[in-house]
Simulated scan of single mutants.
Amino acid sequence: MGKKRIIVAENDLVAMLRERNQRGFTILYDNYSSALYGVILKIVRSEEIAADVMQESFVKIWRNIDSYERSKGSLFTWILNVARNTAIDKIRSQDYQQNTQNQPLEYFVSVVEEENPVEHQVDAIGVRKVVDQLRPEYRSIIELVYFQGYTQAEVAEELEIPLGTVKTRVKAALAQLRNLISILIFVVFDHLH
């Protein structure tokens, strides 16, 4: 039986984090670490590196919580961006590039062939099912940006559409996701009471 999740209102959790309350950080970690780890692992493709990136991400979250602005999105969206950007920075780093060049071919074959554990991590919080409800043109962009670590410029090149279109679709997709997730949270919360 897994550890019971502690549910705290997002505003209260943010306030606890800004007060440098250790319990707030523990709640944040317990509630979101598995989802973040899944996204990080999908980007870096190494459990050891993913563990390091996750630790680095939570340090950044702890240090930079004052820069979180509710008007720009939910706490989860913000911490997901911190983790995703940290993972992308890692794979673009010289150390990572040199490390992957020294990997035997079997490593890459196993990475490609293995079932992707991120699917299970993301599904644990229901994000995959919510993303699947997006319009196809939004879903493809969210897949590339948030689950595969592409930049918006890289998405524009990959999908052969203007960068402005990508930015507009990301914004619209995130708005639709916010609505879908708030409905999901309401339904779950209503079911618990």
Rank of each mutant, 00 (worst) to 15 (best):
R45G: 04
Y96D: 02
V170H: 13
Q148A: 02
Q101D: 12
M1W: 06
A51C: 03
I161L: 14
D190P: 00
I65E: 03
Q148N: 06
E69R: 15
R178I: 01
L184M: 12
N116D: 14
E56M: 11
R92V: 03
S67L: 12
D95Y: 00
V8M: 06
D52W: 01
A173P: 00
A87L: 06
T151A: 00
V59E: 14
S182Q: 04
V111H: 03
M16G: 06
R5P: 06
D89I: 00
E154M: 05
S46I: 10
L159K: 09
Q152P: 03
V187S: 10
E48H: 12
A172S: 11
S46Y: 04
I91Q: 02
F108W: 11
N31H: 07
Q148H: 11
L144C: 01
Q152A: 09
N99R: 03
A35M: 12
E56Q: 15
Q98A: 03
E113F: 15
E157N: 13
K3L: 14
R45K: 15
A15V: 00
V187C: 11
V155K: 02
P136E: 12
P136M: 03
N64Y: 08
R135E: 15
I88E: 01
T151P: 00
G126L: 05
G126C: 05
V145P: 00
I6Y: 10
S93V: 00
L144D: 01
Q103T: 00
L105G: 02
A156I: 05
V82E: 10
